[in-house]
Design a protein around this nucleic acid. Structure first.
Lengths: 360, 360
DNA sequence: CCCCGATGTGAGTCCGGTCTCAATCGTAAG
DNA sequence: CTTACGATTGAGACCGGACTCACATCGGGG
């Protein structure tokens, strides 16, 4: 234990050069595999390096090549399997191209995101992949863009900014799944999301998340096309913790003219919502239909299995990494830009409403 | 915003110094908040830095402080919520102390792990947190240890090596949960794990994972104490993909003298096992009891809710980060070392076996 | 009035690599 | 026997900060 006081400077090219009895420059050339080095010197140097178990200092290397072979990834919450899978796609792809990943969690907090981006830039990452917490507060992203550092967005757009973004078209799939619910006779459809806002939902309000805004647009369009009124009173945001989710669920189901279908905006709150529904003594889909975003494996195990909106999350992560690396290497973006489509996976949690009620 | 030239080089202390009309050394002192600087100079420098939007190059800073304020985390699979949560614990704690996290996925492959450790060392991370893929092949970890770089293990021990490790005592909880099953009358208990081995399980064989070895030890002890024979034929490893899991599940349940209880070694295979059981037309717990490691939220949603072994994964990650940072800062390890205990959460998936069968 | 320590300051070195440049060597062409 | 040209080689200048050291400057104690 106490023996670790021995000062242990690591081996440098200079040490290797001395051992191989050549100049520092020659040793560096042999080790870095560049320039002209005679076979004899190369062998001597490599042997010496091996002997001293020399390892290059990537920090020093990065400093004068300007490349760190590291990309920064900023997400809201790795704990969420949605991002877990996306991160997997990113790291797998990055590794294949020789890049490492620095991961930062923001807890969906814009202040933390701003900080994260700054720190990563300071660390001179070669590029950034960001899942922006907000589609509105995007000055920090604009600054990255201006600085010329490659960046790709994941999952969510950032306001009007023209940044390559890997995300599914939420309006489309939301429209499609809302039609599915409408066709099953549902008119009172609740939409519950974790999105934090200062005031309750009002039609036309500016939402911090392009994702959620797009989903609501899709829903509204489906209602409108059928000449039906969109049940704005059933759009519920700020479902942040288990307690508030429970309250909101009760709120939309245990009232006069309750929701007959509930849409959960992500896989994490879906869990709490289903629990809350069960606690209320209601059965899915007999009493209330249920639909959720994200196709997690466990959704096949419940009784009944849940109808979900599956997003190609891994592929989106992989594509984001691929696109970023192209940018880093100065290649033009792939054309056509990759498109990602979510699919409605119909399992057993959406039931048909009796016509009498549907026409009420 | 107007001075936004297409200049590629970023602003350095030298630039700031020139703008503030002081020497590079003074500018560095003012910016780095060290040494003696007059109030007037400090203000001029900071103003110039602000004006030029100067940001320190952490790479350069790291190079001569020797500290990168970055820790490397090597895990088998972030996609697995078990590691997702642990990673969350690590990043949260690291951030609080001003450390960043470089994350590497090994796919539980030792070769990838060796590579990951080498790369992280080359990047001069201040320390490493590793969840070793193997408890046997640990030379690379020994090398890290010898190099004096701080390291903490997570989740799994590494052979005989004396490295601080944050993990639950698997033998204890395995013993406890096996007793639970035995008391419910089960004698034919299957244990299914993803652990990859070259040959099928044989009693006493050297297992690559201390985790699995400990769990089997715990099971054996429980059986032994009751004077009951341990059903070695029901220990099944190599349950790597959905297909093999399906085959194995059928294999232990659809044979003469089948298993009456199944233990799933992690949350990921648990999903496939439950599915396979359902596909076989068997009911939990009426036909077969089920117990799994890891308490994922969805286990409360199935019918019946699943009995699980809950591990304080987030806390283990957080403690690993805390311990590592203490090491990095040269502080002695916390005493007493933090202990983590898993708990058996009895829900509905373990049923009592009829005595007649239990005595067969 | 002079010496002393405390405070400010600039020049320059160092970290560990990459890379430029000029010098050297060998040898084939003239 | 020169001359020229490509392959090798070493010295040293970077990269962008941290830090050492020598040299002011200034106020107070003796």
């Amino acid at each position: 234990m106490s023996s670790n006081g021995s000062r242990r400077r690591d081996v440098t090219v200079a040490d290797v050069a001395k051992a191989a009895q050549v100049s520092k420059a020659q040793a560096a050339r042999a080790l870095g595999n560049y320039g002209a080095v005679s076979e004899e010197v190369r062998e001597r140097v490599l042997a010496a390096a091996e002997e001293l178990s020399y390892r290059p200092n990537e920090l020093a290397r990065s400093m004068n090549t300007g490349k760190s072979h590291t990309i920064g990834v900023v997400v809201g919450d790795i704990e969420n399997p949605h991002f877990g899978l996306a991160t997997r796609g990113i790291t797998d792809t990055a590794k294949k191209s020789g890049f490492n990943v620095i991961l930062v969690n923001t807890d969906e907090d814009t202040a933390a995101e701003i900080d994260a981006v700054r720190v990563l830039l300071d660390k001179r990452v070669d590029g950034l992949i960001v899942a922006p917490a907000s589609s509105v507060e995007t000055q920090h992203l604009q600054r990255v863009q201006d600085s010329g550092r490659p960046m790709v967005l994941l999952d969510r757009k950032a306001g009007q900014m023209d940044i390559e973004t890997m995300a599914v078209n939420m309006a489309d799939i939301s429209y499609e799944s809302t039609r599915h619910l409408l066709q099953a006779g549902h008119r009172r459809i609740a939409f519950i999301s974790t999105l934090t806002t200062e005031s309750p939902y009002r039609p036309g309000m500016l939402l911090d998340s392009s994702q959620i805004a797009d989903r609501l647009d899709g829903m509204q369009q489906a209602f409108q096309e059928q000449g039906l009124p969109f049940p704005e009173d059933l759009v519920r945001l700020n479902a942040c913790d288990a307690e508030s989710i429970r309250r909101i669920t009760r709120d939309v189901l245990r009232v006069p003219n309750p929701a007959t279908a509930v849409v959960a905006s992500d896989g994490l709150i879906a869990l709490s919502i289903v629990e809350a529904i069960q606690d209320l003594g209601l059965a899915i889909p007999a009493d209330v239909s249920f639909l959720m975003y994200d196709d997690f494996a466990w959704t096949r195990l419940t009784t009944p299995p849940l109808t979900v909106i599956a997003q190609p999350v891994y592929n989106m992560g992989a594509a984001a990494a691929k696109a970023l690396i192209r940018k880093i290497e100065g290649l033009p973006p792939l054309t056509p830009a990759p498109k990602f489509t979510a699919t409605l996976v119909r399992r057993g949690s959406v039931g048909t409403l009796r016509t009498a009620e549907a026409h009420s």
